[in-house]
Design a protein around this nucleic acid. Structure first.
Length: 288
DNA sequence: AACTCGGACAACCGCTCCGAC
DNA sequence: AGTCGGAGCGGTTGTCCGAGT
């Protein structure tokens, strides 16, 4: 069985694209439009994989692409959005007109992640189980940049291997299980829970199980957030249920459109108003 | 001038989702 | 309901280039 490979690897050009190849690709897409990437190389006469053509077009040749010179405003926005969304580069790129996910990802890996790390070392974060008894994780103790998030698939809306602090495991597990039981969809979570309850608990559960139900909002009670902050502690639970309680659902971000909001998926926006939005009660309180 | 090293970024790869059948 | 192919995503790798020695 097995599917047809996206392209035959033999006899194809690899590596950096030449100006000639770019021109062929642009001419073809201008004439025939995007799509049918698998067949495009053959139709256009390019010795490239279809996926490679798609990547080249989307990241470099498409009209309206900005290259380089990422401004301070953009960097700040990327950091904030990364704090909110984790490594969901395509969603982040969608909030930065003219920027591509690949460029933002590279910029993050080479520049911003270090910046954030530096900021973190200035304001170290305590895990909830490291806090003094009776103390709360105050906003001042949370870093503005936050730790790297676990990987979250953009489309799947699913947390894979979310690491939860031990004291929260049972509460989240019980809640997720009860939510799951009230839904008809299957979840890998239950079996995971049965098989793995170490202190470095790795939960594979379908975030939809938590999100589709109105009960999801009650999950706030599982986390010592005080209704203030997205992250319980940042690396532990990347996709906050709190977001959803505030009406910004993870899946909704992809289709998120609201004329009252300072930025839109593909539109222009004002950085200052966006910063205000992110800091506001209606936003995410991502700032320190 | 030659070499090494590290940063930046372009491209590739494997996985997943989703729609069509 | 199950399978398949198209498409998209994020992580990783490869390559280039400039700075330093």
């Amino acid at each position: 069985m097995g599917r047809r490979p996206c392209c035959a690897k033999e006899g194809l050009n690899r590596g950096i694209w030449t100006a000639g190849e770019d021109k062929i690709l642009v001419d073809y897409i201008q004439a025939h439009g995007e799509g049918k990437w698998r067949d495009l190389p053959q139709q256009a006469g390019l010795k490239r994989c279809g996926k490679s053509c798609r990547l080249r077009w989307l990241n470099y040749l498409r009209p309206g692409i900005k290259r380089g010179n990422i401004s301070m405003d953009e960097e700040e926005l990327i950091i904030r959005l990364h704090n909110l969304l984790g490594n969901r580069w395509s969603l982040i790129a969608g909030r930065l007109p003219g920027r591509t996910d690949n460029e933002i990802k590279n910029h993050w890996n080479t520049n911003l992640s270090k910046k954030v790390q530096d900021q973190m070392h200035k304001t170290p974060v305590k895990r909830p189980d490291e806090l003094e008894p009776g103390s709360e994780m105050s906003k001042e103790e949370s870093p503005s940049g936050a730790k790297p998030h676990p990987v979250i698939r953009t489309k799947a809306i699913r947390c894979t291997r979310v690491i939860l602090p031990t004291p929260l495991i049972d509460q989240v597990a019980d809640k997720a299980t009860s939510v799951h039981n009230s839904n008809s969809e299957t979840s890998s979570y239950s079996s995971t829970r049965q098989s793995n309850f170490s202190s470095d608990f790795l939960a594979d559960f379908n975030i939809d199980d938590l999100l589709v139900s109105g009960e999801a909002q009650n999950l706030d009670s599982c986390f010592p957030l005080g209704g203030e902050k997205v992250d319980c502690y940042p690396s532990d639970f990347a996709l906050s249920v709190h977001d959803d309680a505030e009406g910004i659902r993870s899946e909704g971000l992809e289709n998120w459109r609201d004329d009252d909001e300072p930025f839109q998926p593909s539109g222009s926006f004002d950085f200052n108003s966006l910063a205000s939005f992110l800091d506001s009660e209606d936003g995410y309180n991502l700032d320190e």
